[in-house]
């Protein structure tokens, strides 16, 4: 029988983790969380989360970096802003969730079976290149890259849309794609400085 420690020692925490979260989310009130739990109770998906929003806030404050970034919570958050509107400490919890998503992608921590990062990446690709998005293309890429058998599950939806003439296969493109390229590369250059 193996016995594993179930708690973390202080030395294993990243005490300045909250600073990174503040920096990335633009929300400087993270430390003001009073652990009231309003966010978790108003959240429509907290019952599917491994850590509820309240717990996650406590983890950020205490420096549980790895646990927070590996959590499924941020991928289930649907960005409904209910928590943000209700929080008595005016913490922009939704923006914190977005920040944790970005940090998890950067550090390679996101769960591989989660299609959300793939979806985001595909959308970014298309939009940077064409300026427009194609729902069908993004949806198919997402399914193919994360779970090819999911195609069968998608088929009835596709068929129903097709019957109603709502399946739009074509890909739009804006005229001035050069401008978008210039905008993004300009931003990248400045950010790198």
């Amino acid at each position: 029988m193996e016995f594993a420690r179930t708690v973390k020692y202080e030395a294993e925490l990243n005490k300045s983790f909250y600073k990174e979260v503040v920096e990335s989310s633009g929300c400087d009130k993270v430390l003001e969380c009073i652990q009231c739990g309003t966010c978790s109770s108003t959240c429509p998906v907290s019952l599917y989360m491994d850590y509820t929003p309240r717990k996650l806030m406590a983890m950020i404050k205490a420096g549980f970096e790895e646990d927070a970034l590996k959590s499924k919570t941020v991928w289930i958050c649907s960005s409904c802003y209910s928590c943000t509107v209700m929080c008595p400490s005016q913490i922009k919890i939704t923006d914190v969730m977005y920040a944790l998503k970005r940090m998890a992608i950067e550090k390679g921590y996101y769960p591989k079976s989660m299609p959300t990062p793939v979806l985001a990446k595909e959308m970014n690709n298309i939009i940077s290149k064409r300026g427009r998005n194609s729902e069908m293309y993004v949806a198919s890429m997402m399914v193919l890259k994360t779970n090819p058998f999911g195609m069968f599950k998608m088929a009835p939806v596709g068929l129903a849309l097709f019957k109603k003439r709502r399946l739009h296969i074509g890909m739009e493109k804006i005229k001035n794609t050069k401008q978008i390229k210039k905008l993004l590369s300009g931003l990248k250059k400045r950010e790198a400085k």
């Binding site: 960005s79 998503k101 970005r102 959300t116 990062p117 940077s128 300026g131 427009r132 978008i180």
Partner: peptide, 15 residues
């Protein structure tokens, strides 16, 4: 052009 919807904010907020 496409607004980027919510997915973009999850990967690069400034972009």
């Amino acid at each position: 052009n496409c607004c980027g919807a919510t997915a973009y904010f999850g990967t690069d907020e400034k972009m």
